[in-house]
Design a protein around this nucleic acid. Structure first.
Lengths: 112, 112
DNA sequence: CGGTTTCATCGTCGATGAACGATATATCCG
DNA sequence: CGGATATATCGTTCATCGACGATGAAACCG
């Protein structure tokens, strides 16, 4: 059982990532991740999700000066590269960071 | 005097970067840097410039499967965000990494 | 069941990006 | 001077992005 907390988006196991940080595949991966992060709103979303240690939901929309559909688009971009995860929780959706992908990004950047 | 080497793009002084890694300005900066890096060819160019410890020139074009003008465009994008530097050296241009900006990028990513 | 809320998806439109070939510019070599 | 070389820039074309409002789908509430 989990303590209290929103009970969504449990942190996955903390396995080390063995994939290389160089080579063509790594280049593509790094390009995809940085491209997804390459928009101020999306940086802000990631930042929001790091600050609230647990995941939040459509409150993200309320924090941003954009239409709901636009925010949903940005969330989709981040989800498609695996930087965040979204879990349906009743009528709403709960988003949170995917720490493994974030660590992977840091490793790839570090490899430069 | 420098040893041998292309003698262009000397590494700038190694001052610490005092700018914050959070806040709106940092978000914009991180978005701009990651956006510039968000293309496989540009990742490859940065990687090329890290491997040859010294700077190289239009050999970059020969390494890539793109027209010269396209490569020049990508170099411009990287230069505009300060990730690389280009110095005119006779009829050719010598590009190299800007280590300060790269360190800044790592700091910003680390701040996530 | 029917309305409300929450979110995702669709269609559209203007802006930006990526690629190219052609051209301009600047330097070097006869 | 005149040609060759190296690079930047321009103009064009097609694709993708970013934003929006409208609509659709799912779950909750009465």
């Amino acid at each position: 059982m989990k303590p209290a907390s929103p009970a969504c988006c449990p942190p996955p196991a903390d396995e080390p990532d063995l994939r290389p940080v160089q080579g063509d595949a790594a280049d593509e991966e790094l390009a995809a991740l940085t491209k997804a992060l390459g928009h101020p709103i999306r940086v802000q979303i990631v930042r929001l999700l790091t600050r609230r240690e647990s995941c939040i939901c459509g409150d993200i929309v309320k924090e941003l000066p954009l239409a709901q559909s636009t925010v949903s688009q940005h969330l989709k971009v981040l989800k498609e590269v695996g930087l965040i995860r979204g879990e349906i929780d009743g009528p709403r959706t709960c988003y949170c960071l995917e720490p493994r992908t974030l660590r992977r990004l840091k490793a790839l950047i570090g490899g430069l």
